[in-house]
Design a protein around this nucleic acid. Sequence first.
DNA 1: CTAGAACCTGACACTGATGTCAGATTCAAG
DNA 2: CTTGAATCTGACATCAGTGTCAGGTTCTAG
Lengths: 119, 119
Amino acid sequence: MRIGELARRTGVSERSLRYYEKQGMLFAERTPGGHREYPEAAVDRVIRIQELFAAGLGSEKIVQLLPCMRDTDGGPSAVATPKLVGDLTAERARIDRMIADLVRSRDTLDEVIEAARLS
Amino acid sequence: MRIGELARRTGVSERSLRYYEKQGMLFAERTPGGHREYPEAAVDRVIRIQELFAAGLGSEKIVQLLPCMRDTDGGPSAVATPKLVGDLTAERARIDRMIADLVRSRDTLDEVIEAARLS
DNA sequence: CTAGAACCTGACACTGATGTCAGATTCAAG
DNA sequence: CTTGAATCTGACATCAGTGTCAGGTTCTAG
């Protein structure tokens, strides 16, 4: 599929898709005229990328991580190096803290919302 | 306490504390010479602010939200306006989605880490 | 009183993903 | 072939919180 359809199906702007490619997170064949042609699997990959961004991972980490994930392009996954495993473990801990923070903030909002409802 | 101690105790830079004040999220008395003097409750407040930032709330929302929270300065809380309640409800939904995303990303990391451990 | 630590304001830079615009090219349908 | 939609590249702007530096003032211990 081409970039417009991929953008529509993922909710990610064409601008961002080109950016992902420049960062090495996303790849596309090219038509003879130079237009990008994406495989079906690109949809899943873009969604994964978005989730990882939302989790606070940077492009660089994602680039290293992607080939180690399954379900990206069906091909055999690479295995993370010990260094990468260390990094990812740290990221995991960070994500855990982030989730805990979010839960606290959600509770805070709930309190305020509930207090208003009761008034 | 003064700004250095508050920064040390909260882990937030002095720069950021001054920024919070300029945005109207944090208040301080001033010594005759102009130095900031914070009450003990500022520690909790700063931590709350950080959590809300981490949850994706902007300064403006936080400013509106803070007077409606309890445990900020012990004083009687204001009650959120209907408009604010609507905004906060939307933020709450966003936080829920964010948590779900984070859990998925954490699972992704776990898979990669586990695959490496098994190899 | 004095020295050094702590603090003040203000300004500029950065980060990193995304928006947006311009001008040119390609694609696909009539 | 023609035309309009879609795509291309490249550049500049934005956001919001934070880092950092400069030059000056205040505080506090000796």
